[in-house]
């Protein structure tokens, strides 16, 4: 009985195996190439490590947003709340308790997750415009609390006095940002692969299902609300990591960590790169930040114009973002023939 039941699945696995393992290999090569790029950048741009580190941190944040917006389909304009929670969590921990980076990283992640869970309890009941407004409000409330508690947090002057210990007691954070860069890269690689596993899991499939049709998910017995709270909490954990790395590497946290600009930019980066693919978070963030950096250094006053135009073009011609380009191109080439 048991045997006859399992057979069809086995047959299928066998016929699909070569194609699947080839696909797996290609994906692995792409991932390795990406890591290679990350390592190569370390040697090619030794004078720009600070900027590239900011890109890496931003990628972690945008990845965490992809989980919520790209996979589960929950639109939020307050992701900075979770980033800021992680940044202040890790920053305050370093100033008042322990300057150990890995411990601080864990604290930042947990604070991000806790804030996400608590705010998620009411955010995940809301939809559409109400949800957007509420997510913005959460970030602003947190910002205001940190601002008011200036005796502890430094308020609008920012949290000063972070002085991180060396990682594992060996690798000190140096003035050129070499250690900081490799630290951020390592964290990013771990987060990326963890998320890859997560989105391919049953839990990830459920998130996509909620995105596609929440009524259908309820009708198959899924407690949609609690799943969303769970997804949001995991996202908060990762956004908290991004905030913590930022606090540790720059040894500074300011109120801008909760800023609306950060939330909005993260969303634009994700839309640019493409939602619900993880790789979109990487490519969108890199393109946005490099264009921003270059445009701002050429014309410090009108760079926003360049970014705006780029976003318009992408949203208009490739609504799926840069990750949608290959498919678009293939279709276009076929049409040309």
């Amino acid at each position: 009985m048991q045997e006859t039941q399992i057979k069809p699945a086995e047959n299928l696995a066998q016929t699909a195996a070569p194609a699947r393992s080839r696909k797996f290999l290609i994906k692995l090569l792409i991932d390795l190439a990406l890591i290679g790029v990350g390592i190569a950048a370390y040697f090619i741009f030794p004078d720009n490590l600070g900027f590239i580190t900011r890109i890496l941190i931003m990628i972690i944040l945008v990845l965490s947003l992809d989980l919520v917006l790209g996979y589960a389909g929950v639109a939020t304009l307050g992701h900075a709340a979770l980033f800021g929670a992680g940044a202040y969590g890790a920053g305050l921990f370093a100033v008042y308790f322990s300057a150990d980076p890995l411990l601080g990283l864990l604290v930042g992640a947990i604070v991000g997750a806790i804030i996400a869970f608590i705010s998620g309890l009411f955010l995940m009941r809301a939809h559409g415009l109400t949800l957007l407004m509420l997510t913005i409000a959460v970030a602003q409330i947190l910002q205001e609390i940190i601002n008011k508690e200036r005796a502890i947090t430094g308020g609008s002057d920012g949290l000063l006095g972070i002085d991180m210990d060396p990682i594992f007691g060996i690798y000190a954070f140096d003035f050129f940002g070499k250690t900081g860069y490799l630290y951020a890269l390592t964290v990013l690689v771990i987060v990326f692969f963890a998320l890859k596993i997560l989105v391919a899991s049953p839990f990830g499939a459920m998130a996509k299902g909620i995105h596609e049709s929440a009524p259908r998910m309820r009708a198959i017995g899924t407690p949609v609300y609690w799943r969303l709270v769970g997804i949001y909490t995991i996202s908060g954990f990762i956004a908290g990591i991004a905030g913590a790395v930022s606090a540790q590497v720059t040894e500074l946290v300011s109120l801008e960590a909760f800023g609306f600009a950060l939330s909005a930019e993260a969303m634009v980066m994700l839309i640019l790169g493409g939602l619900g693919r993880l790789y979109g978070a990487i490519i969108g963030t890199v393109i946005f930040m490099v264009v921003h950096h270059t445009a701002a250094s050429i014309d410090p006053f009108n760079w926003l114009f360049v970014i705006g135009t780029m976003v318009l073009i992408v949203v208009y011609f490739v609504p799926e973002g840069f990750m949608g380009l290959p498919v678009k191109l293939r279709r276009w080439l076929r049409w040309q023939k």
Binding site: I6, A200, S201, P202, G204, A205, M206, I220, G221
Partner: peptide, 21 residues
């Protein structure tokens, strides 16, 4: 999806969704 949900596997995070024979 409904089978994963019914069998209580819907919150599993570490194996692929299609990895349950």
């Amino acid at each position: 999806l409904p089978i994963l949900e019914r069998t209580g596997l819907g919150t599993k995070m570490f194996k692929k969704a299609e990895a349950y024979p």
